[in-house]
């Protein structure tokens, strides 16, 4: 459990100077370590907040209930890179989790295009998905999954600006080593995934992501 709590501390840092951070600082002094990460919000984050952004994302790690806010930093084709206030990042392909940076999970990148197409069109079907993970020995490891996607019909969910009518889509994936289930709520007016629960991998488990409109 120690491993995970270390991961959590940095993820979505809450600004608290806990005992373990003090211990880490003491260790750094002893090891003559340069301090790499300045305290306070991540410098690339503030400019994003000044730019017009239609919505932010709130991501919560289900296991630990740790929360963080994310703003869109960059977009290339259908891939979006979202930056967290403390310098971590999540990448999405049309709302489907594509990669993680800095949160401890080793998801380098994915190919989720087939799943995204089905989820956003509201159709049932079968899709292939590929995840590339860092394996702890700095090697990129490909994992392929076969996924079944089905619609569970309309669902009204509560967002920060009121109720939204959505289509609930469930994706069930099985691979050689593990299997998981993701759930997406697709806004029927904007075709945007406004809420989802998605698997990040063994280390951190499920991520709950929702769109937040009133975030400034």
């Amino acid at each position: 459990m120690i491993r995970k709590s270390i991961a959590m501390l940095s993820l979505f840092a809450l600004g608290a100077c806990g005992e373990s951070q003090l211990a880490a600082r003491a260790l750094n002094v002893f090891l003559d370590e340069p301090s790499t990460q300045a305290s306070g919000p991540f410098p690339r984050f503030a400019p994003l907040l000044q730019m017009p952004q239609p919505y932010a994302l709130q991501a919560t790690l289900v296991r630990s209930s740790l929360k963080g806010g994310f703003l869109l930093e960059s977009k290339q084709g259908s891939i979006e890179s979202w930056l967290g206030s403390d310098g971590v990042a999540l990448t999405f392909d049309r709302g489907l989790l594509h990669g993680t940076r800095g949160i401890g999970a080793g998801l380098l990148a994915s190919d989720v295009s087939e799943s995204a197409a089905l989820v956003l069109s509201g159709r049932n079907g079968v899709a292939d998905r590929i995840h590339t993970r860092l394996d702890g020995n700095d090697r990129a490891e490909l994992q392929a999954y076969r996924c079944t996607i089905r619609s569970e019909g309309p669902a009204t969910i509560q967002l920060d600006n009121g109720p939204a009518s959505t289509l609930k889509m469930v994706e069930t994936c099985a691979g050689l080593d593990d299997s998981f289930q993701n759930t997406y709520w697709v806004d029927t007016r904007s075709d945007l995934i406004v809420r989802s629960r998605q698997w990040t991998g063994e280390e951190l488990g499920e991520l709950d992501v929702r769109v937040v409109y009133n975030f400034r």
């Binding site: 491993r3 310098g87 999970a105 080793g106």
Partner: peptide
């Protein structure tokens, strides 16, 4: 312990700058 496995495989580094257009 398994030396072939970092205690946090993905790492806790700050996010890289995305390559924009």
């Amino acid at each position: 312990i398994n030396p072939a496995k970092r205690s946090i495989p993905g790492g806790l580094e700050l996010a890289p700058v995305p390559v924009g257009s």
